[in-house]
């Protein structure tokens, strides 16, 4: 188990980054970003086997694909703090001429991004393609992907889910951020997702549930289980239960902060709940 204290400090700093990034440009998506801070920190700091220098082809390393691209603030913060690009560049989020576009893209050449995402429902197909190529290249590394729960309303996911099981894509570990919220409200009010475990299992996936997806130890344990299930003929789905807006009390448990930035006062409250640890950018 990695040093949880250090990773908790990093997670707190990532939360500060998220709040400051969206506040500065008065736009962006803090809710889902805050909810996935622990997951990204765990993934990039420990779970993934990755190289320091970014190469698009990513031979002999694990690869990650973010399908719900709107949570770019957490992605950018963790990529920067994992060494992919200077932390100071977080200052340019959503500004003109920036590599940190509103939604992640390869177009501006930001290291760490392997495909554009934002229009929802496309990431799992891309991840499966990368997984097939890993198999062709006899590269034993894993493909990780992250998807919003509301995003599963997009039909393309179910094409991909069917393909992955039917073709034994067992080097793929796809995590669903189950926070139960989407722009218009709770997922069960907008379009109920039903029993996600039963659905993935019925399609032929192995499923791991992480009940406290905002607890680093729970994430490490759950992802270790997911890894142990990989390579056995089935793709692996991780149902990661998170709290949207986690770590900022007034943003938690609501869809209200899905795509809304805090004002000056709200920012101060949010930052006071997440004291600086590694240093602000």
């Amino acid at each position: 188990m990695p040093n949880i204290k250090e990773l908790k400090d990093l997670t707190t700093q990532v939360r500060r980054d998220i709040l400051r990034m969206v506040h500065k440009v008065n736009s962006g998506h803090p809710g889902g970003s805050l909810g996935c801070a622990e997951f990204f920190v765990a993934l990039y700091q420990d779970i993934m086997e990755r190289k320091d220098d970014f190469q698009m082809d990513g031979h002999d390393e694990d690869l990650f694909f973010l399908s719900n691209g709107h949570i770019s603030p957490v992605f950018y913060s963790v990529l920067a703090r994992s060494g992919y690009f200077p932390v100071d560049e977080l200052n340019t989020f959503r500004l003109i001429d920036s590599r940190l576009q509103g939604h992640p893209t390869t177009h501006e050449g930001l290291p760490g991004i392997r495909v554009a995402s934002g229009s929802l429902g496309q990431g799992m197909s891309v991840a499966i393609g990368a997984a097939e190529t890993k198999k062709l290249n006899k590269d034993k590394h894993f493909i990780y992907s992250l998807h919003g729960d509301g995003e599963l309303q997009e039909g393309q996911n179910w094409e991909a889910i069917m393909y992955a099981a039917g073709n034994k894509i067992d080097n793929l570990i796809s995590t669903i951020d189950v926070n139960g919220q989407q722009i218009d409200g709770a997922t069960h009010n907008v379009l109920p997702l039903g029993d996600l475990r039963a659905k993935f299992e019925a399609f032929g996936w192995a499923v791991v549930e992480i009940e406290n997806g905002n607890d680093l130890e729970a994430i490490f344990n759950g992802m270790a289980e997911a890894k142990s299930l990989a390579g056995k003929g089935k793709p692996v789905c991780v149902l990661l239960q998170t709290i949207m807006g986690n770590g900022v009390d007034f943003m938690m448990h609501t869809h209200a902060w899905h795509g809304k930035a805090p004002n000056d006062e709200q920012l101060e409250v949010g930052l006071s709940q997440n004291p600086e640890t590694l240093g602000d950018y």
Binding site: M56, D57, S125, T133
Partner: peptide
């Protein structure tokens, strides 16, 4: 749709 997405991923 899955085919096009997979093709994009396979280039990586």
């Amino acid at each position: 749709a899955n085919m096009i997405g997979m093709a994009a991923g396979m280039t990586i």
